[in-house]
Amino acid sequence: MQKAEKMQALREFAAEIRVETLKTIGSLGFGHVGGSMSIVEAMAVLYGDVMKVDPKNPRWEDRDWCVLSKGHAGPCAYATLALKGFYPLEETRTLNKPSTNFPSHTDRTKTPGVDLTTGSLGQGMSTATGAALGNKIDGRDNHVYVFVGDGECDEGQVWEAAQFAAHYKLDNLTCFVDNNKNQLDGAVDSVMSHGKGIGAKFDAFGWNVIDVADGNDVEQIYDAVHEALTVKGVPTCIVLNTIKGKGATFAEPSAAHSSQPSPEQWEEAIAAAEAELAAVKAAK
């Protein structure tokens, strides 16, 4: 496939994930929309092109791993994995309902395709690091991707894991920082600022750092991921400069962390995302 064609397919996949993530959260009426929307394009690139996974065998030993350390973005993973064929889309509509396999935060014991359990911020960064080490010890040719939030980077544990991953030269680990500039109580810069920047911190910890100017652009993400795969001897951090709530009409303007919009606002948001999907397809 030509690159242009591939990018077109990834843009379509991203637009589909956005629609289905909104419908998944919308089936309950409220939830963590902001942080689910900002990583849509990165998830599209990973599951649409980069990662080796087998929907029929989610625990395939040679698979690539994906860990949402910012576990509250679960709905985006649920939509992505459904579109990838891990389970029927309808199942995601049980989100947070009694006895569901799709809880707010990603859970490896419940959802096929979810590699590690997260929810307490910071912990997925360590468990992903452990998985990368384990795969390395076993000599596997696979890769572990982990997403952390920019707010999540407040946690000391993120940096303990960063120090560990660099020390053990885990070049099979790539960390995406969802740099959407907002956490729960507001702007990251006002709640807890990151000195010279999160990328500079990873750099100081001995990581290879790639800054993606538009973290909601599939081509820029694609290029960064492929560049990361060529770097040996150190883990790579990809800082995605994203927009919190991207594409959700009720959440993007305020960068809301969690949202409970009216039924009309849900309809409007889903319609807008569907129109965007149609426009992307028409651009072919």
Partner: peptide
Amino acid sequence: PGVCAAYNGGTH
């Protein structure tokens, strides 16, 4: 506390 964590689920 406890079940009051409701929609945040088992992790919380």
